[in-house]
């Protein structure tokens, strides 16, 4: 069947035809919220409500079979396990679940689902989505992260650090950067590279600059942890030590050892404090993401 194809056959069959004993709603009342969702819109020829077949004569049951398979036997013997062809949840195998969804949803962002990290670790669509709820939490920016944190618990802790994106206030969801259905980028990012992903909101860093800072040009995560750190602005390590992991030039200060004596009262305070306190190295080398000033080779202009 092709997506969007209107059903050619009748959507309901009588109980006499199928031997069904009662409508699904009698046992599964709570799941009927699905009729209030996009899946429940009969006017859209692509939905389970439009394409499914009712086995009970109750039109509302039509969509159940569209995803769960032929429920005739289950309806006859509701307490016998194993009669529902496709069940969703942790205790059921992933592939039949996902096949049921991909039958209609393999396009768009799901093109790269097969072989994606989530698919390889046997996650299912129902691991994250609530198909029967009229509002799916993972589709709402304010509540999305809480769904991801069910498995990515370390990311939840990082959110409470001193320097983070505005996720806690509901303006920044995990999908702002990540394509959870898979992509061609490591960590399933939305764009082709880490930097391209970051430039969606930070286009001022994109350049190209006259004087590039190679580390920034290469990968923003060389220096930043976008999930949050205690070193603002989301730096993996404090300055000046972060800079000194790549820069220890001779004849100037970048090879100097900076420690506690560079702080007030210390023997090296007068000589070296300016490279340690305040913005540390970026007190002077502030164009750390690149400079377009013709005299900006040392990222000071």
């Amino acid at each position: 069947a092709q997506l969007g194809k209107a059903p050619d056959e009748p959507q309901t069959r009588s109980r006499a035809e199928t031997g069904a004993t009662k409508p699904c709603v009698e046992c599964h009342e709570g799941f009927y919220a699905i009729t209030k969702t996009k899946h429940g819109v009969k006017g859209d020829a692509r939905t389970p409500a439009a394409t499914g077949k009712s086995i009970t004569g109750d039109p509302a049951d039509a969509m159940c079979g569209a995803c769960h398979g032929d429920l005739t036997e289950h309806n006859k013997k509701p307490r016998t396990p194993g009669l529902v062809p496709v069940t969703f949840g942790k205790k059921s195998p992933a592939e039949p679940q996902n096949e049921a969804c991909l039958a209609c949803h393999e396009q768009g962002s799901r093109i790269h689902w097969k072989g994606s990290k989530h698919e390889q670790t046997k996650q299912t669509c129902a691991s994250c989505h609530r198909m029967h709820a009229s509002k799916d939490p993972v589709m709402v920016t304010e509540t999305q992260a809480s769904v991801c944190f069910e498995c990515h618990q370390d990311r939840r802790a990082e959110l409470h650090r001193m320097s983070t994106h505005p996720t806690k206030t509901g303006f920044f969801g995990c999908s702002s950067c990540h394509a959870s259905h898979g992509s061609t980028t490591r960590a399933s990012l939305q764009k082709n590279t880490v930097n391209e992903t970051c430039y969606q909101c930070h286009a001022q860093m994109r350049g190209p600059f006259l004087w590039e800072h190679r580390s920034a040009q290469d990968d923003c995560t060389n220096c930043h942890n976008p999930h949050g750190t205690n070193n603002a602005p989301m730096l993996k390590t404090r300055l000046p030590y972060l800079c000194q992991q790549c820069h220890q030039d001779g004849g100037n200060h970048s090879s100097t050892a900076f420690g506690g004596k560079t702080l007030p009262g210390g023997a090296n305070f007068a000589a070296n404090a300016q490279r340690v306190v305040g913005n540390a190295c970026t007190n002077c080398h502030m164009k750390i993401h690149g400079s377009n000033h013709p005299s900006g080779a040392r990222l000071q202009r």
């Binding site: 209030k36 609530r130 709820a133 509002k135 304010e142 809480s146 206030t169």
Partner: peptide, 26 residues
Amino acid sequence: DTMLTARLFRDSDVLFRDADMARWSD
């Protein structure tokens, strides 16, 4: 229901922003 945990967690983080997921339905 693990989602409930998630909902509760959001309650701690979102300032008066639809802390009760049930409200999303309404």
